[in-house]
Design a protein around this nucleic acid. Structure first.
Lengths: 66, 66
DNA sequence: TTAAAATGTTAGGTTTATATTACATAATGT
DNA sequence: ACATTATGTAATATAAACCTAACATTTTAA
């Protein structure tokens, strides 16, 4: 199962979903879906998010058992 | 632009495209497409590939200018 | 306390990842 | 040389990512 820390890190930077979406070229709905864990974004988007949130991709998204 | 080292690392381990595909649950064609850089896989698949090739996901896929 | 901004969520549409099947060529082993 | 295995590549199909638009609710700020 795919897990992520997008919501937590976005909050840490005080970004809104719209702001973060703008930084990585997706809509705020896409950010919302990712935060809810509703789908697995492309590695391209994951890399952009990691860059925007200043963390390694592997620390932003990871696979868990179950 | 998205770049990756899948082909290089797969060769290092002596895996065929089919073998690697089996390890990460995709077909050999999907591996071939990724090696050719024809599309951006999901972060889930990217994480599985990184695990199979024993490298950090950020060292397997990265964004370059242009 | 009211307006604005942010978030939750849903529906329908487009694009892209991935599967399946297939055939051709290249490489490997006997 | 022949058979097998690996790779390149293409067509069509399906599933999933992502978009646009919309409306409701929650949070923030004046």
């Amino acid at each position: 199962m795919l897990r992520n820390r997008v919501k937590e890190l976005r909050a840490r930077y005080g970004y809104t979903q719209s702001e973060l979406g703008k930084k990585v070229d997706v809509t705020r709905q896409t950010i919302a879906f990712i935060e809810k864990g509703e789908f697995s974004p492309s590695i391209t988007l994951a890399l952009k998010l990691a860059q925007a949130l200043q963390v390694e991709v592997g620390d932003l998204f990871w696979l868990e058992e179950e």
